[in-house]
Design a protein around this nucleic acid. Sequence first.
DNA 1: GATATTCATAGGTTTTAGTTATGGAGATCA
DNA 2: TGATCTCCATAACTAAAACCTATGAATATC
Lengths: 303, 303
Amino acid sequence: MNITLRQLRYFKALAEDLHFGRAADRCAISQPALSVQIRELEENLGVELFERQPRALRLTQRGEEFAERANPILQAVDELGDWAQTARGRGLSLLRLGIIPTIAPYLLPNFISALTEAHPKVDLHVRETVTPRLVDELLDGQLDAAIVALPLDEPALVETPLFTEEMVLIRPNTDQNATPVQLDTLASMRLLLLEEGHCFRDQAISFCNINPNRPGGGLDGSSLGTLVQMVGAGIGVTLIPEMAIDVETRSAPVCINRFDAPAPQRSIGLAWRASNPMGEMLNELADIVQKAAGRGEDQQPAA
Amino acid sequence: MNITLRQLRYFKALAEDLHFGRAADRCAISQPALSVQIRELEENLGVELFERQPRALRLTQRGEEFAERANPILQAVDELGDWAQTARGRGLSLLRLGIIPTIAPYLLPNFISALTEAHPKVDLHVRETVTPRLVDELLDGQLDAAIVALPLDEPALVETPLFTEEMVLIRPNTDQNATPVQLDTLASMRLLLLEEGHCFRDQAISFCNINPNRPGGGLDGSSLGTLVQMVGAGIGVTLIPEMAIDVETRSAPVCINRFDAPAPQRSIGLAWRASNPMGEMLNELADIVQKAAGRGEDQQPAA
DNA sequence: GATATTCATAGGTTTTAGTTATGGAGATCA
DNA sequence: TGATCTCCATAACTAAAACCTATGAATATC
């Protein structure tokens, strides 16, 4: 009642050999098996494809037409097999990666070159937004992986820690320079923070043990760069991750203070859906990110 | 070990529904059956096509690629089914018809119009040559049918008589006109014949009971038209089938004599390979030729 | 007339596909 | 929190499909 690929393959062999015995050999089946399959194909179609003469077998006109349609199908199926073989062996082809904004600008340049070095053909799509969106899009299947601050505490996601980074205090140049500070001295300063939604804001708040209600008097910055400029203008102080130091403090009259141990720090990791069958490759991706961060030695398991 | 169309159909259903239960319903199988087939497809390919999450099923990147390749294949197979349905119902599409030269010019005009009336879309290829070639090409599968003089006596061929036609004597105008002649009076005349190979030559020879060795002194004509012209020039007399009278005697100074009964006649029929599955249609074709000959009432079975 | 070639058919076996029953893991709800 | 529900996977068994060997019929060949 239904055409099968097997029948099409047998038909093709018979159409080429025009001899049941030889065609059956080529198909590695017995002659009666071929006879039956061809008969069933013709019955299914309701069309006679072969003209059986006692001595000579030949395609009917309909058989010729059928061959012209059947052969491309078989070819397409073969190509599907080839595709599978390639797909099986090959690594990433498309990587839809999310990154939080407080990491993206500092990590991406290194990461992109490391990635294209390891996987020259990969097509990278980067999505830069705050963690909750990244998590949603991961769960949704819109992203393959995301670089975020750990932990996420999403049971459907796997997290692999990449590195930890310390936070540093940025103060106006007019303040006394370069002296390590204690965390608790922060409470007395006007601390400028990122807008709500950024995980870095929450981390800063929790590290400093300060009142989460507008510690900067509503003067939230939309990026670390903005915060640093604000500090340079003498409005207050801020925290930034050490990774951002080079880029952000270059053009502002600020000084950088590291904290005394134990310095506040956060763990950055790669997350993906536990069910993603590319898991193995995403582990490899984590290695690449780690190298790109140039901080493989800092790795430490997330809590 | 091998992709099947069944697997592709199931894959398509699942890729569309992204739900095993519903997709299985659509395929009219149970959910476990679908599960197994999908798993086997993935194992065959060595590629995971679906990402199974507890709540949400989704195509992997590979699965998307696979769908893009599998769907056209399924579509082509469906079209193959449509083609079969059409092919089953439809009549002739290509007709490779052979005709002997002593019939062709007189029958073809009527036949072609009758054929295109009955089968407007048919593609007609006409091959005009002598009977032995036609028979060879029929047996070879180069022709579908041929209009020839019966009997052919080829076991592999079926013959259907179409009509019989009498032969008439063509004499120069200077002879006494319009008097029916006896066959045996021919022996005394110089009879002009077609070249060797034409069945009509042999038929004329046998009808007249004359010596087959060059009765015309080597003056064989290559067509009935030539023969009539030669008669008009007073070289001798000839026989032509009555069908040819109108066309061939119009422009020559000749007169036509019918024979007394029993007049010499030949049986014209349609022949095709007994093994040709279009036999039914070729019977219909015979009817069309018969009507075209305008002599359906003359039909008589071949010996 | 005997033999060989070639395809079709028949009976029995193996393989494949399908069914129902069941299990487990994660959501959902009281 | 435990009970229930949804959803897919697995297992054991059954039905269907595909295949093989043996054999037959028709024709060509010696």
